[in-house]
Deep mutational scan, measured.
Amino acid sequence: KVLVLALYDYQEKSPREVTMKKGDILTLLNSTNKDWWKVEVNGRQGFVPAAYVKVL
């Protein structure tokens, strides 16, 4: 399983997205889209901007 680090806070803007806080460790589920990556955080799955996270 691939983990990513949240570099910035992100507030979800649609039901398909998830909120994350800077420093959160998320599970990367899909990174085929260069702009939006699907992650799991706190038991929820959704998209975050790829530029806001870094693969650990």
Rank of each mutant, 00 (worst) to 15 (best):
R44Q: 11
Q11E: 15
L26K: 00
V18Y: 05
G43C: 10
G43S: 09
V48G: 00
K1A: 15
I25Y: 06
K13R: 14
V55Q: 07
Q45T: 15
L29M: 09
L7G: 02
Y52H: 06
D24F: 05
S14E: 07
E40A: 09
L3D: 04
L56E: 05
K1T: 11
K22V: 10
L3Q: 10
V39Y: 00
R44W: 04
K54M: 15
T27M: 13
K54D: 05
V53I: 10
A51H: 11
V55D: 04
V53D: 00
E17L: 06
L5G: 03
T32H: 15
V53W: 01
L3V: 11
L3R: 09
N42P: 08
L7H: 03
T27F: 12
N42D: 15
L28V: 12
V55N: 06
V18A: 05
Q11D: 15
V2L: 13
P49F: 03
L3H: 10
K1V: 15
Y8T: 10
R16A: 14
V4M: 07
K38F: 14
N30L: 14
D9I: 02
P49G: 01
P49M: 03
P49H: 02
N33D: 15
T27W: 11
W37C: 04
A6T: 04
Y52W: 08
D9H: 07
Y52P: 00
K22C: 07
D24K: 03
W37E: 01
Y52D: 04
T32D: 15
A6H: 00
Y52I: 06
K13G: 11
M20C: 06
T19G: 10
L7D: 02
V4H: 02
A51T: 15
G43T: 07
P49N: 02
V48H: 00
K21D: 04
K1N: 14
V53G: 02
V39W: 00
E12W: 06
T27C: 08
K54F: 14
V18L: 15
V2Y: 11
R44E: 06
Y10V: 01
A51V: 11
K34H: 13
L7T: 05
K38E: 14
Q11A: 15
E17C: 06
K34L: 09
E12L: 08
I25K: 06
D9C: 04
Y10S: 01
E40G: 06
M20P: 00
I25V: 13
D35I: 13
A6I: 02
P15H: 15
P15K: 09
F47V: 07
V53K: 00
R44H: 11
V53Q: 00
L5K: 08
K13L: 14
Q11N: 12
G46P: 00
E12M: 12
T19S: 14
T19Y: 04
T19H: 04
Y10D: 00
L56T: 06
E40Y: 11
Y8A: 12
K54H: 14
T32K: 13
M20L: 10
P15A: 14
A50R: 14
N33R: 10
L3F: 14
L7A: 04
K21Y: 13
D9G: 06
A50F: 03
Y10L: 01
K22L: 06
K13M: 15
V55L: 10
Y8K: 13
T27Y: 13
W37Y: 11
G43F: 08
V41H: 10
Y8V: 12
G23A: 03
T27I: 12
P49W: 03
